[in-house]
């Protein structure tokens, strides 16, 4: 948690820059890189909580979905005015609202759940997804079960070209920005007192408590940060998809994918989700093209195999393989 973090972050930064340049420079890579950006961001955001605490929130996708709804509803509301505000203002508001809604939900759920240990935490959060979905469908807010679509609002308020630019170009960069902010947050967290406390609680929660770590507060802080970023990621996804329907928005597959990518790369490492995300993104792209609709069928056994055979992921494996050498110090 000292010099190694710096070095690995520089590498991460370089890899990300290359991805970004490729995306800007080679338009043909748009489709695949847009998938990659989203998945790397998703698993890095997920990793910010799960990786740093080793607690898993199975209802995680609820925060992304809430961000999609919050962002979408904000855009719809602002564009319903007779003279719509500038695009930048609309998007900024969408992100802000998405983040704030996710933050509030995370505070409410987290305030109760982070007091619980292990399996009890999973119980408290596994229903989050179902709960929110049924609340939206039950009360009929945000279009209820018929969903929320903002495509027409964008086209009518601005024009078709702007719409295409926003959804197919800008959205990717916004998602990339969320990813960059997440990396920055992880860096700031692990460099701080908070990071030392979390590292200790990840190893032995009771001993950490006796060592002076306020475990409940620390878990809550990273849970809320992670959820807020997930909400913002949702806003980015909403701008990209311009529509949200409860069955897809609350699909459990995002949670599974976030777990798979983090575990594949190496849970609790900063570089892991990027490595995992790159591999997974490419695989998913190939699989969606050749076997549409079967990703989960392939993914679930893969995840089971990972749990049993190499729970420490690629980065964990590499760190063991190259123990004591320079490569180990680069991978954190």
């Amino acid at each position: 948690m000292d010099i190694r973090t710096h070095r690995s972050l520089i590498i991460l930064f370089l890899v990300s820059l290359i991805l970004l340049f490729v995306r800007v420079g080679i338009p043909e890579t748009r489709q695949i890189l847009s998938i990659l950006f989203f998945y790397i961001a998703l698993s890095e955001v997920f990793n910010l909580f799960t990786g740093l605490t080793l607690y898993v929130c199975f209802g995680y996708v609820a925060f992304v979905a809430l961000g999609m709804y919050g962002g979408g509803a904000t855009i719809k509301y602002l564009l319903s005015a007779s003279s719509p505000p500038p695009l930048a203002v609309v998007l900024a508001c969408a992100f802000a609202v998405a983040g704030i809604l996710a933050l509030i939900l995370a505070l409410a759920v987290g305030w109760i759940s982070v007091r619980l240990k292990g399996a009890y935490f999973a119980i408290a959060t596994i229903g989050l997804n179902e709960g929110l979905k049924n609340l939206i469908e039950g009360t009929g807010i945000w279009g209820g079960s018929s969903g929320l679509v903002i495509a027409n609002d964008l086209i009518q308020s601005y024009n078709y070209d702007t719409f295409i630019f926003v959804t197919s170009e800008l959205a990717d960069y916004l998602i990339f920005t969320v990813y960059a902010v997440t990396i920055l947050c992880i860096y700031l967290v692990i460099k701080s007192r908070l990071g030392y406390g979390l590292a200790a609680l990840r190893e032995d929660e009771e001993a950490a408590n006796v060592m002076g770590v306020n475990v409940v507060r620390y878990k809550l802080i990273v849970f809320v940060i992670s959820a807020t970023l997930a909400g913002m990621l949702g806003a980015g996804k909403m701008i990209k998809d311009v529509a949200i329907y409860p069955p897809q928005a609350f699909a459990v597959s995002y949670t599974v994918e976030a777990i798979v990518i983090s575990m594949l790369g190496g849970l609790g490492t900063v570089t892991g989700p990027v490595i995992g995300g790159l591999i997974y993104g490419v695989l998913k792209y190939v699989l969606t093209v050749s076997f549409p609709g079967l990703q989960l069928l392939a993914l679930a056994p893969a995840l089971m195999a990972m749990c049993v055979m190499f729970p420490y992921g690629i980065v964990g494996w590499l760190r063991r393989r190259f123990k004591g050498s320079k490569i180990e110090s680069l991978l954190i």
Partner: peptide, 19 residues
């Protein structure tokens, strides 16, 4: 092993059955 692993494993098995 870590509790997280068994949680993820059972979760994945559930998804597998669904698929």
């Amino acid at each position: 092993g870590p509790e997280l692993i068994s949680l993820v494993l059972m979760f994945a098995f559930g998804i597998f059955l669904q698929e």
